[in-house]
Write a protein that binds this DNA or RNA. Structure first.
Lengths: 233, 233
DNA sequence: TTATTAATTGTATAAATGACACTTTAAAAA
DNA sequence: TTTTTAAAGTGTCATTTATACAATTAATAA
């Protein structure tokens, strides 16, 4: 018994939705597609799954190719398999999303894909069903962030409360009261206040905080609800 | 340009995790695998994706084959693609889970797969990576049910509060206080109390309720938190 | 020295949650 | 017919959590 008979085989691709945050806005890393069809048009970073690698490995390889980063937060989002989603040949795409520290990325040398970061409300026209992938990723990020502290994956080791609040506000598309916000975040016990300040963003400067990595790991599955149902909407 | 060159192609399968609820316990519908390898062993219901169908269509087709049901709640869970998950040939499986009214199923004639319902803590040895699929499905169901009223998909049109509570207790693996439970469920406004009782389960009988389908649709995304973090654990 | 800008901090009210036990109903048993 | 039994149904209080809201502080710029 060598193969299953009378069955069609298809290409398997992996596409990666790479989120970054610059302190103000959530962003997506997009590339110019390098081959036909749609060569040169904006696209998610992707590639075909090699014979000996798992889906996760393929996603990690593709992320590394583009950003030079490995070991970052990455999770499967959804598999897309409409018969004609790729006009050349039937291809099932398994989409992953990654949350990276955008500053780590900036240290890397960009390569031949001419990647660019785009603010979420200024995403250019994307190929194939990539717009749908991005839409689903955004809502997944919101849902997940309301239950787990994953947004910290987007921040550098040291960050300030105002920056953290910017991040949550951008992800949820709404403003939070800063008194309530800091109370809630600090009550998790995940943050450690540092003794020095970040001074670039304001005259007064804002104290740095950093994650208590022990607690971060142990409490990863019991973060607070971030207003799944805001009263003012 | 006809095909992408120098790329390997793989089989794509869809496997379905079919949940049912008999009023007491959550159950899974399993079959005897019909072909080699592992022929006759317990397995999730699955099949290969046909050339002209989407993943969703394949999942719906497979569900219909086994249960005779269509139009039921179904959602993609995860894609599994480890290189050797199927010993015969590389196969990526996209797994869906379905929530069905087990009574609807019982009216169907069973067929050649010899399907059986299994209580979740008495799942037999399953083939390949199907155990992992089931594990992920269980936790997905819990997570989703804490945010959306999906568990009603498992109930018949008319149901009682004690039965509903049994369902939630089984999904979360804990007991709820019935006073607090009914208060919370009824406060959603999703339930309509009927004038007659179900009398089989107790002497006194319990009033039937039914879903307000209007509200069910409109409030689907704003159901109450079902104790993602119970205080007594 | 003063003005400016953003960071930091507290309280009062409302809503949701969790703990807890008796009454009611209707069938079954005596 | 009466009594027993088993599960359904219901209310209150205490605690926790969420929300609304504004004055003070720190540091730079004028």
């Amino acid at each position: 018994m060598e193969r299953y008979i009378r069955q069609q085989r298809y290409l398997i691709a992996v596409d990666s939705i790479i989120f970054g945050f610059d302190g103000e806005e959530l962003k997506l890393l997009l590339i110019h597609r390098g081959f036909e069809p749609e060569k040169g048009n904006w696209s998610l970073m992707g590639g075909f799954v090699e014979p000996e690698e798992s889906l996760e490995m393929a996603a990690a390889r593709i992320l590394k190719q583009l950003t030079g980063l490995s070991g970052v937060y990455m999770e499967q989002l959804h598999a897309f398999g409409n018969p004609n989603r790729d006009p050349v040949e039937r291809t099932v795409s398994v989409v992953y999303y990654a949350l990276i520290d955008i500053h780590q990325y900036e240290k890397q040398l960009s390569d031949s894909y001419h990647p660019e970061w785009f603010t979420l409300n200024k995403i250019p026209k994307l190929i194939f069903d990539h717009p749908q992938m991005v839409t689903i990723a955004k809502s997944k990020l919101r849902d997940k962030a309301s239950v787990q502290p994953i947004l910290f994956e987007l921040l550098p080791r040291k960050f300030t409360l105002p920056v953290l609040q910017n991040l949550y506000e951008d992800v949820y598309g709404r403003k939070f009261d800063k008194r309530n916000f800091s109370r809630k975040v600090l009550s998790s016990g995940l943050l450690v206040k540092l003794k020095h300040k970040e001074k670039r963003r304001s005259k007064k400067g804002a104290f740095y905080y950093t994650l208590d990595k022990q607690k971060y790991k142990s409490q990863f599955n019991s973060f607070l609800n971030f207003t799944p149902f805001p009263s003012d909407l």
